[in-house]
């Protein structure tokens, strides 16, 4: 295998990574100005709330979180992958420089928070203080999101959510059509098999992941079989929102995130269901 090109971070010599082109990071930083960055950082981190301060003023930099992170362990203990290092390279530096960072720095932050942290909460579990590192990562994600510096595919999913309220740009007609098509397909094998759409008062509302009606159609087929065999009174929503994934939550796009959760709950209330079953 050819040796891949490496970049050494200008700000932290320990941060050495392979070059991985991504339009969402490489192109979007071109429109950033120092004023814009400073303003955004101050808007997001300006009000130092209890949860931010607790982390910043308590963390004793002991490094005990490092071995909780699979990124750190998998990269032979590279210190720049440790959870505390991710905070150091992003939020500490932003606050230390009082928001006066450049676009290159934001790009580096975006790479750290969007592609090297899974928000899995394992570090909080291993931190002696139980500090919410993931909350801090989320704040940095918010900064990067507001500045529009997000890996292209994540941003695309977010746009899909904002536009169609599902992650795969599936319109309502396609969604209904897919459900009816699957009902016919599986119904060829089983008697009276239905995929009830918008059935009021059903016991269970099943919500797929957005990708299921698009590329993972077999999940719908299997679910229909299971529901049929178990004799469950179930339904799928006929109106948006039916996608149980929530990319905006990960990007900290709060407006779209709330629209999705609200839409799911409103569907549940409208159909008076008792259980909401999500694939994710």
């Amino acid at each position: 295998m050819a040796v891949k090109e490496k970049i050494v971070s200008r700000d932290f010599k320990e941060y050495v990574r392979e070059v991985n082109p991504d339009v969402g990071l490489d192109e979007s930083i071109k429109g950033l100005t120092p004023e814009k960055i400073e303003k955004t950082i101050k808007a997001v981190l300006g009000a130092r709330t209890a949860r931010i301060r607790a982390v910043l003023e308590t963390c004793i930099h002991c490094g005990l979180c490092s071995k909780a992170c699979q990124w750190y362990l998998s990269n032979d203990g590279d210190p720049s992958y440790a959870p505390v290092a991710k905070m150091r390279m992003t939020i500490w530096e932003m606050l230390k420089r009082d928001g006066k960072v450049d676009a290159e720095f934001i790009k580096q932050c975006a790479r750290i928070v969007f592609t090297e942290c899974n928000i899995c909460h394992r570090c909080s579990m291993y931190c002696p203080y139980g500090l919410d590192v993931t909350f801090i990562i989320g704040l940095v994600r918010r900064v990067c999101f507001v500045l529009g510096v997000v890996p292209q595919r994540q941003m695309d999913q977010d746009h899909a959510h904002a536009t169609t309220l599902n992650q795969v740009w599936l319109g309502q007609n396609d969604w209904l059509d897919t459900m009816q098509w699957q009902e016919e397909e599986v119904g060829a094998e089983y008697k009276d098999l239905r995929i009830p759409i918008d059935k009021e008062g059903a016991e269970v509302m099943w919500l797929p992941l957005g990708a299921e009606p698009k590329t993972g159609i077999y999940h719908i087929e299997r679910t229909a079989k299971i529901m049929h065999a178990a004799g469950i009174d179930w339904t799928v929503p006929g109106k948006d929102v039916w996608d149980s994934s929530n990319m905006p939550m990960f990007l900290r796009d709060f407006a779209t995130m709330q629209r999705i959760v609200r839409g799911l709950f409103d569907n549940a209330i409208r159909l008076r269901i008792k259980k909401m079953v999500l694939t994710e």
Partner: peptide, 20 residues
């Protein structure tokens, strides 16, 4: 997790980061 699922152009980077 954490929104990294969609990043197929980073797949090698992600898999390398999960040797454990």
């Amino acid at each position: 997790g954490g929104g990294l699922a969609g990043l197929s152009n980073w797949a090698a980077h992600k898999a390398r980061g999960n040797r454990v």
